[in-house]
Design a protein around this nucleic acid. Structure first.
Length: 275
DNA sequence: GCCCAGGGATGCG
DNA sequence: CGCATCCATGGG
């Protein structure tokens, strides 16, 4: 049961919703756990999420935004149950239960996942935070993610100062060509066309494009294959030697419309249980 | 010092 | 198409 009030959403435990898994499964970077609550930033908006007994409460001045952001209109009971028809172990299903694919801002997702390439989550988070401090607008809750206009005004030296390494050149090149119209047109075209368009952009290859399709464009058939998912393919599924491209096609064909959520279950399971 | 991290660009066959 | 190599940076 989900109760939406003017400044608070209350989610009871009969809903498939785990705030810890949803934020830490690698799809989003601008959050911290502090003072027994999650603090979350998206665009220029802010929310605090607290688990109180059996309920999860989302506090924000922008409740409608976060209601959509957390995909609370979607039936995750059906989605989670549908995954039982696939070749996933009980432990993977239980481990991933409660993860939701967030409805994030397209521009923020593109920039974030350009930074993510061959990088680790901890460092991705700190680079993005410095980006917000460097180019975003300060408000009472911290720094907003830079708008497209603010981002485009970034100098090469500013991007290099973020500690993004060689990715700073991709960010700068992307800043030279991105526009509101470009992003709006990407939203309006087919998944395959959008994927091709994304891959043509600087710093975006097949894996980052699939993350953008899944996290920024709501295309549930996308199945990003990174080093962790590649490990799952070989170690859990016992797959034969294949290219990442082939692994992505194999899983996407198998899971269909459930590709995105299945990928998150597998990624989260492998990254948390490896070692 | 080496290896790895939510890989991409480039060049070469 | 597949494959090798290079690419900054910080943590283990």
């Amino acid at each position: 049961m989900i109760k939406k009030e003017s400044k608070c959403i209350t989610i009871s435990s009969d809903e498939i919703f785990d705030i810890n898994k949803t934020l830490t499964c690698g799809q989003v970077f601008r959050f911290i756990y502090q003072d027994h609550m999650y603090k979350l930033w998206s665009k220029d908006k802010f929310a605090r999420i607290i688990v109180e007994g059996t309920c999860t409460k989302i506090y924000s001045d922008d409740i409608d935004y976060f209601y959509n952001y957390f995909a609370l209109k979607e039936d995750y009971n059906s989605i989670h149950n549908a995954l039982h028809h696939y070749n996933l172990s009980k432990s993977i299903l239980e481990f991933g239960r409660g993860i939701r694919i967030l409805h994030q801002d397209l521009f923020e997702v593109i920039v974030s996942f350009i930074i993510s390439a061959n990088n680790n989550i901890k460092r991705i988070q700190s680079i993005i935070e410095r980006l917000c401090v460097c180019l975003g607008t300060k408000n009472v809750d911290g720094y907003a993610f830079p708008t497209i206009e603010q981002f485009c005004k970034g100098t090469e030296a500013q991007f290099e100062s973020l500690g993004a390494g060689y990715r700073s050149r991709y960010l700068y090149k992307f800043a030279q060509i991105v526009s509101v119209d470009m992003l709006e047109s990407i939203k309006s075209i087919s998944t395959q066309e959008a994927r091709t368009k994304l891959i043509s952009l600087p710093g975006i290859g097949p894996k980052v494009a699939d993350c953008v399709l899944l996290f920024g464009l709501g295309r549930a058939t996308a199945f990003p294959v990174d080093t962790w998912v590649e490990k799952v393919y070989y170690e859990v599924f016992g797959g034969k030697k294949m290219t990442r491209k082939s692994i992505a096609e194999y899983f996407s064909d198998y899971f269909g419309d459930l590709s995105g959520i299945a990928q998150q279950y597998l990624f989260f399971y492998k990254r948390e249980t490896d070692n």
